[in-house]
Design a protein around this nucleic acid. Structure first.
Length: 441
RNA sequence: GCGAUUGUAGCUCAGUGGUAGAGCGCUCGGUUGUGAUCCGAGUUGUCGCGGGUUCAAGUCCCGUCAGUCGCCCCA
């Protein structure tokens, strides 16, 4: 007998049991339906992109990229060396848009629900392989701001449809904070905003200290920088707050106008407890240029974003000589799903999609049972036929373990009736094989 | 990449130097055609891996691998 290799768990690459996967599939169906209800179409891009494409943006993301090599690759064969697994769906989407430019109709609205790979240190809610559900709109030259308002709305609809605990969608516009910081004389905008973004985590005092220690800002300067970052409201009062600062900056005012439009729209359709205008937020990805969006669980905000996105002026610039502004968001399904499982908030009783288990009463009645199953399937039910004429006790126990909610009893003897049993209530009654049943699943 | 912490049965874990354990699960049974509860019987191990100390190591020491949690960054 050969020695067995005991498989180890691979950190950061989640896999689920059938009862969990069943729910994940339901989620993906719901998300897809909502995306399509707004007219987004589906595309799927390969798992790999050319390294040139994927690292075009440079920066921190590069060190998380997995590249491809063949185990037995010939030294001379470099054909795979230029390939890498995509770490998000926005960059492949930009490339796709550029490549198929002439065949697409703009504004191009698409969704993608694929896996992405990042070589990060895995921890709670952070994986190396995970699924994101992305939507983006991309247009030529100009993209109306109304699309920016559509994104958080779709997010909200999805969070509602998935029955999640309350989610807060935070919105802002980078132009406001960037413009403001420029106007007051901050030079290292990127580092400053990175620190300001942590205000929820380390508090205003922590941010101030960090600004002074890491960036050598004066006490006064740090205080000034914080002014806007402290603005977190669920109404339109931010407009007055920003105006009252008496700062002259075109970029800031442009951002304010955009955010005003988006906020006004959203306040009509998203309950105030689920929406927050948060001027400290900038998001890390450096391609965002206007609206930024981030969603967190209200009861567990430090868990991290459960969805995010924003506006970018020109993401496809590296791939095509046209200006293609876009806006999009990504729903972190893997992260949310793992959190829900961890908190035991998912009903994972069904280990099988089957709604009905057809019992095989005896060897003699095997054909009758087979026909009953066939008939029920024709009526649109998901049906499993038990695999042998075992003891009834055993067959019922099997249904119980798999979480199949209904049992179909074909006649035990020729001439008798069919019966159906509801496993949850124990109720059993005569049934018509040509009518199927009203399921309450 | 940096820091901390944990590895014992399928799962959750107990076991601080002297025969490897519990609960849950799983299998079978409790007689005609009915699950969950109950009762009975059975089943489960490279104690992560390698080395060292010791008469004796799951237990102590060193190393290593893996998991987990922070930091960074991010869905």
């Amino acid at each position: 007998m050969s020695k067995i290799y005991k498989p180890k768990q691979i950190s950061g690459y989640p896999e689920y049991l059938p009862e969990e996967r069943l729910i994940e599939l339901e989620w993906l169906d719901k998300i897809r339906n909502i995306f399509e209800s707004y007219g987004f179409c589906s595309i799927e891009t390969p798992a790999v992109e050319e390294l040139e494409v994927i690292s075009a943006k440079g920066g921190d993301a590069d060190k998380e990229i997995y590249t491809l090599t063949r185990l037995q690759a010939d030294e001379k064969d470099q054909s795979d060396a230029r390939l890498a697994l995509h770490f998000d769906q926005t960059v492949p989407f930009a490339r796709y848009t550029a490549q198929h430019f002439n065949d697409l109709v703009f504004p191009f609205k698409r969704y993608q629900m694929q896996k992405v790979w990042r070589g990060e240190r895995p921890q709670k809610g952070r994986f190396r392989e995970f699924r994101q559900c992305d939507i983006d709109v991309i247009n030529i030259d100009n993209l109306p701001i109304s699309f920016d308002a559509e994104m958080p709305l779709i997010m909200h609809e999805i969070y509602q449809a998935l029955n999640l605990p309350p989610v807060q969608i935070k919105i802002s516009n980078r132009k406001i904070l960037f413009g403001y910081l420029t106007a007051i004389g901050i030079t290292d905008i990127q580092s400053t905003t990175r620190i300001l973004d942590k205000i929820d985590k380390i508090g205003a005092d922590g941010v101030k200290t960090a600004l002074m220690e890491e960036l050598n800002l004066s006490d006064d300067m740090a205080e000034q920088s914080l002014k806007l970052a402290k603005v977190k409201v669920s109404d339109l009062s931010f407009i007055e707050t920003v105006k009252s600062l008496n700062i002259e900056n075109d970029l800031m005012m442009e951002g304010l106008e955009e955010l005003e439009y988006v906020a006004k729209r959203l306040l009509k359709d998203i309950p105030v407890e689920n929406l927050m205008i948060d001027l400290s937020m900038v998001r890390g990805l450096d391609y965002y240029t206007g609206t930024v969006i981030e969603a967190v669980f209200i009861d567990d905000p430090l868990f991290g974003a459960v969805g995010s996105g924003g506006r970018y002026n020109d993401l496809a610039a590296s791939y095509i000589n046209k200006k293609l502004p876009g806006v999009g968001v990504s729903i972190g399904v893997s992260r949310i799903f793992a959190w829900m499982l961890d908190k035991d908030l998912l009903e994972t009783s069904r280990k099988s999609p089957a709604e009905i288990l057809v019992i095989v009463p005896s060897e003699e009645m095997q054909d009758t049972a087979y026909d009953a199953a066939k008939n029920l399937r024709k009526l649109g039910h998901k049906v499993e036929l038990f695999h042998s004429a075992s003891k009834i006790k055993k067959q019922l126990s099997y249904a119980e373990k798999k979480g199949i909610p209904y049992i179909w009893f074909p006649p035990f003897k020729e001439g008798q009736d069919h019966e159906v049993k509801n496993m949850a209530t124990g109720e059993q009654k005569i049934a018509d094989i040509n009518q199927g049943l009203e399921l309450d699943t």
